[in-house]
Amino acid sequence: MHNCREVKERLTELILEGRSDSELAAELNTCAECRAEFDGVNATLRTTTRVRETAIPADSYWPGYHARLRDKLSHVQVRRRKENTEASFAPLRLCVNFLLRPVPVPLAAALVVFALLGLLAFQSTRKPAAAQSVVVHVPVAVPVVQEKLVTRVVYRDRYLPSRTSKRTGADSRAENTFAKSQMPRPDDVPTLAGFKPAADVKLTIIKGGSPNER
């Protein structure tokens, strides 16, 4: 059954898409109203298509259009490069702006008061300087005692009579006299007074002496 409303909805699409529909064409032939609708829509869209090219300006218009566009593009490019440069300094700028931003007078006054109160509180709670123990590190030169074993060679007459040998009285006296003469006098007793060890140790070993001599 013919439905004018349905046909009118379909015919618009048909015209817009430029398709042909034999079934719809048959229906248009049977309904004058639908036919008139089809002709009207078709004429309207053909007219808009015809004047479509009229909307495009003449060729002489386009060089100026593109020159103006190029000019705007150049500005955009410059601005974009500037923004990229500024973006690299953005964190620093943010910090500076934060530090330099204006502060309301009441807020500033409150901050100053709080700072003063804090300073006073700090001063009152601080301990006296004398009570504090201060550790001072002072370098002290300590002489290093280098112990050195010093021996002194004492030559002894190997033929000096032993104190333990049994001698006669006269011999003993004679030997004692001789021994006393050989004995070093108290002044000659070797002492270490005034002895200064040499830097280099000189060791002399004399062989050929007594077998017991070390």
């Binding site: 479509r52 495009i56 300006p57 386009w62 259009y65 593109h66 566009l69």
Partner: peptide, 10 residues
């Protein structure tokens, strides 16, 4: 832009 400017302008 020269290729497509007329269509956009239309």
């Amino acid at each position: 832009a020269e290729r497509y400017a007329r269509r956009i302008h239309l």
